[in-house]
Design a protein around this nucleic acid. Structure first.
Length: 948
RNA sequence: GCUCGAGUGGCGGAAUUGGUAGACGCGCUGGAUUCAAAAUCCAGUUCUUUCGGGAGUGUGGGUUCGAUUCCCACCUCGAGUACCA
């Protein structure tokens, strides 16, 4: 028979599992967090970077940012805002496809399963997401619009005069009436000039080819980063240290026909926009760096004996009289043309040798200087002197013009090259020795031996040289960007298909009303035997222009039925605009309605990792500006404020095996002995770093008969902070924490670990502090029997504690200093417990204060206090200064800046009265030990400092 | 190499515009309660000390009545980038 009394007291315990399940169900049933697209309230859009749903599930590091944004979103609801706080999945990607290759399981199935698992985990943490707006990038209803935006990009060009994107039809109109002579557009470098007449006479195919040179997404032969192991190309931001970011596979340069995005057209605006957003300075720096703006000049050198010129970009036109040779990249198109007979063999060998070297090898030996003389000479634009033309792999084909004017006295690489090959190093600097190293200090430059710019500084000389170059038609001022156009094709299956088919080799867009073009079924997810992307395996992947449907490949007749594009879009396609989709996620007619876009405008708070600095966060800004240019959205920077949450690191545990034995030595006994550290699962180690020996023996067969050297009967593991990962056995799952301590404890502990932006190690041992705090909070409301909240008038101390807390917590949330507000709550509850406060006037506002952090316990307490509605929309308590007013101050009294004692004095006292009171204190007399103070500093309300 | 950022107890970390360094929590020590344990509660916990004090926020200097905070130089660690002309 159950014991009634016992059950009754059980009820009054803080039963977090029951409470959390109850309120999670309540929120879901009542759609508590569904946001309306119309409201009298001010709007607030709190966004998290949506996750890729991996098979491993979430570990405690993942939700950190989500918890922070959730606290902020909940806080804003209390503050009377209409809050949009959505979540979704970036569900196209490599892992699901790699898994499909291994198992044959369709990526859609694994993705679906992973999403369910993620959702389950997220739900357990009690987020206030509006799930009615969920998006998945791999869902046809979503990627329909990704394809739609792609078509808009195809149908647009960049007008540099207007500095915005415009429809291609307008460009065609210009071509028809005046050719391209007056067009100032972002286009391919090899675009030739033509008149209206010429344009009108071009064949349709020729016209299409020319237009591709202008379109914002275009098909072109490009040098790409080919990763053989992954069987696909990679963008620059997907390569780290010369190997693929995912998997660390080698990457080689390869020329391929690929879709590219003309992001370079937006370089200046991407730079400028950074000035207007509240993003971390470090992140802005990374983007600025990546865009890599440099101001200088383009200079043309005629090649002697050839009808050719070498264009170079230089940031130091002022040093043009210091040129003693030129260097071309080995891949430079002029190399073959201008090389003399005598040098031909050497040059060809060198070009051949460098092309065979991988990117990584080239990077690895930057110290080795290599190059070959072409035998050709260029003509200095001012002096007319012969300038020998060399090739060398320190010049990159992909930057600037792929050629440099070498000024060995002013550039260290040129200096090294000149030294190595015995080339002259003419000095054009006043009072500087350049025999040992180059002089690159612009600020202190005084030009000499340089004709019309002698005696000038860097700035003036630069300006003069550019003017002179323009006069003789051999150069002009130019700004160069490091930012390259982004390759947009991937030779993969699990990505958005392009809405593109090919007629006579030219890409054609499928009309938008026929979107989405859904991914076809394939038997194998590997490239075809002929090396085509996986979509080449699809038997039904052709476009019928009459029925406007996807049909069988064998029907292709190149008259009415054409082959479809075999590449798919990269991972960053969907994430480049998803934040706009949340504003109107269900819309089937538009990517989002005008009303919704106008109402929500932009993201007020965006939280995510800084690893997306040069990928997602740059591409999405580019797409936003493009959509803005077309008038489709009303803001050109989509995220006002961005915070990078720091990574939560794992605390790995190690055992130490003696070399060539099966004996494990406790951490403090290893001494100088040769030991091999081995990761052990952190779940087998307790809070005191003590290893569970039985669990360890059972962990793996080879440890079954392990022997141990123990200290005081215990095996103590070594600890090290590392990235949290399966292979390091240091992963902690939020599910376990939720079931052992509850979601509210998890949320508060994650915040309590430290500042949001900072990387910090996870250590489950510390969680009891936060958990105990919640139990203590609970006890303010319940004694053993029942609710013990009274209607008694609060005391002055009660009010002081409450209002101190309101003030601090509000400031902390506004400053995203969530760790300190958790401390503040602890202090508050400690004080109220000591005061034995059970007054409703205090405890009710306290529930609202803590609700953003610990929403489940807050809902339960709120309802126990008699409220029928959710606490989620209760007004945030208002701080009242009057409760904090003090009449006295505990003054710290310092001697020469060192605090020695404190003395309580009335705050009404004047400076002189304070000084007198302190000087007459016996402790002062003792400290001074007979000396006379030289000076007494009194800051009323703050400190007293006695000097002498 | 260049560009950022960070160094505070055994640990995670606090400290408004320069004004009581180490809040809060973990861990540890002692105590209460308990048959015992868990749980809970109380006290202590930077180092050093001859118990008067003395030293102390990576190191060395500087500004100031007073510096974790501002300035200069250096050291260490982390991140980004990598021949960018």
């Amino acid at each position: 028979m159950p014991c009634i009394r016992n059950t009754y007291t059980e009820v009054m315990k803080y039963n977090f599992n029951e409470i959390e399940a109850k309120w999670q169900k309540y929120w879901a049933d009542n759609r508590t967090f569904k946001a309306a697209n119309h409201s009298d309230k001010p709007k607030f859009y709190a966004l998290d970077m949506f996750p890729y749903p991996s098979g491993a599930g979430l570990h405690v590091g993942h939700p950190l940012g989500y918890i922070a944004s959730d606290i902020y979103a909940r806080y804003k609801r209390h503050k009377g805002f209409n809050v949009l706080h959505p979540m979704g999945y970036d569900s196209f990607g490599l892992p699901a496809e790699q898994y499909a290759i291994q198992t044959g399981q369709h990526p859609a199935l694994t993705t679906e399963a992973n999403i369910s698992r993620y959702r389950e985990q997220l739900d357990k943490i009690g987020f206030s997401f509006d799930w009615t707006r969920e998006v998945r990038t791999s869902d046809p209803s979503f990627y329909k619009w990704t394809q739609w935006i792609f078509i808009q990009l195809f149908n647009a060009w960049y007008d540099l005069d207007a500095d915005k994107s415009r429809p291609v039809q307008e460009l065609i109109n210009i071509f028809e009436s005046e050719g391209n002579v007056n067009v100032n557009a972002a286009c391919d470098d090899d675009t030739q000039e033509f008149s209206a007449d010429q344009w009108n006479k071009f064949s349709n195919k020729e016209q299409q080819k020319i237009l591709l040179k202008y379109r914002l997404t275009y098909l072109a032969d490009t040098e790409v980063n080919w990763c053989p192991a992954l069987g696909t190309v990679l963008a620059n931001d997907e390569i780290v240290n010369g190997v693929s970011e995912r998997g660390g596979h080698p990457v080689v340069r390869k020329k391929m026909t690929q879709w590219s995005m003309r992001i370079s057209a937006f370089a200046e605006r991407l730079l400028e926009g950074l000035e207007r957003v509240d993003w971390p300075e470090a992140l802005k720096d990374i983007q600025r760096n990546w865009i890599g703006k440099s101001v200088g000049a383009q200079v043309s050198f005629k090649v002697k004996g050839h009808d050719a010129q070498i264009d170079v970009f230089t940031t130091r036109p002022d040093t043009i009289f210091g040129v003693s040779f030129m260097t071309l990249a080995p891949e430079h198109e002029l190399v073959a043309r201008i090389t003399t007979e005598e040098q031909k063999k050497a040059v060809e060998d060198y070009v051949e040798a460098t092309s065979r070297r991988s990117e990584r090898e080239r990077m690895a030996d930057v110290k080795n200087i290599s190059g070959v003389f072409t035998g050709a000479y260029a003509e200095h634009p001012f002096t007319g002197k012969d300038v020998p033309v060399w090739i060398g792999d320190y010049v990159l084909a992909g930057y600037g013009t792929g050629a440099v004017m070498a000024v060995p006295c002013g550039d260290q690489r040129d200096h090294d090259f000149a030294n190595h090959f015995g080339l002259p190093i003419p000095n054009i600097f006043e009072g500087v020795d350049v025999s040992v190293e180059a002089f690159a200090d612009k600020e202190n430059t005084v030009i000499a031996n340089s004709d019309f710019i002698n005696g000038m500084g860097y700035k003036k000389a630069t300006q003069c040289v550019i003017e002179e170059l323009e006069k003789i038609g051999q150069g002009y001022g130019k700004i160069n960007y490091r930012l390259r156009d982004a390759v947009f094709s991937r030779q993969r299956y699990w990505g958005e298909p392009f809405p593109v088919y090919y007629v006579d080799g030219m890409p054609q867009m499928i009309a938008t009303e026929h979107l989405p073009i859904e991914l076809p079924e394939v038997e194998k997810y590997l490239p075809t035997e002929t090396g085509e992307p996986p979509l080449g395996n699809a038997s039904q992947w052709a476009w019928d222009t009459e029925t406007n449907t996807v049909v069988e490949n064998d029907k292709i007749d190149h008259k009415k039925i054409f082959p479809l594009e075999l590449n798919t879009m990269p991972g960053w396609a969907g994430s480049s605009w998803y934040f706009n989709r949340y504003m109107d996620a269900g819309n089937t007619k538009e990517f989002a309605s005008k009303e919704a876009l106008n109402y929500w405008q932009d993201v007020d708070l965006y939280i995510g990792g800084s690893e997306h600095a040069t990928g997602h966060l740059l591409y999405s800004r580019f797409w936003q500006k493009f959509l803005y240019d077309l008038g489709l959205i009303s803001v050109d920077e989509y995220a006002r404020k961005l915070i990078n949450q720091g990574m939560i690191l794992g605390t790995s545990a190690f055992v130490y095996r003696l070399e060539n034995s099966n004996t494990f030595v406790s951490a403090n006994l290893k001494g100088d002995r040769e030991v091999q550290p081995i990761h052990v699962d952190v779940n087998m180690v307790n809070a005191s770093d003590e290893l569970n020996l039985e669990a360890f023996k059972a962990w793996r067969p080879e440890f079954a008969d392990a022997k141990f050297e123990l200290e005081e009967g215990k095996y103590i593991v070594g600890r090290e902070v590392e990235k949290m990962s399966k292979s390091k056995y240091n992963v902690v799952s939020p599910d376990d924490i939720c079931s052992d301590y509850g979601a509210d404890t998890l949320r508060m502990y994650e915040m309590f670990l430290g500042p949001l932006e900072q990387a910090k190690p996870w250590n489950t041992a510390g969680i009891t502090g936060v958990h105990n705090f919640l139990k203590k909070l609970w006890k303010l409301y319940f004694d053993k029997e029942a609710l013990c909240v009274t209607d008694n008038e609060p005391t002055a101390d009660n009010l002081k504690t409450l209002h101190k807390t309101i003030k601090k917590v509000e400031e902390d949330i506004e400053n995203f200093s969530f760790n300190t507000s958790v401390s503040t709550f602890m202090i508050c509850v400690n004080e109220l417990s000591a005061q034995k406060c059970h007054s409703r006037a205090i405890l009710e506002p306290l529930v609202v204060l803590i609700a953003p952090y610990a929403p489940h316990i807050a809902e339960e307490l709120w309802s126990q206090l008699g409220h029928q509605e959710s606490v989620a929309y209760a007004a945030f308590p208002v701080f009242e200064e009057k409760h904090l007013v003090e009449s006295t101050k505990e003054y710290p009294v310092s001697f020469n800046g060192k605090m020695r004692f404190t003395k309580e004095l009335s705050l009404d006292l004047s400076k002189d009265q304070i000084e007198e009171a302190v000087l007459s204190d016996e402790r002062t007399i003792k400290q001074l030990d007979g000396r006379t103070p030289k000076k007494v500093i009194v800051v009323p309300g703050k400190i007293v400092n006695i000097v002498g």
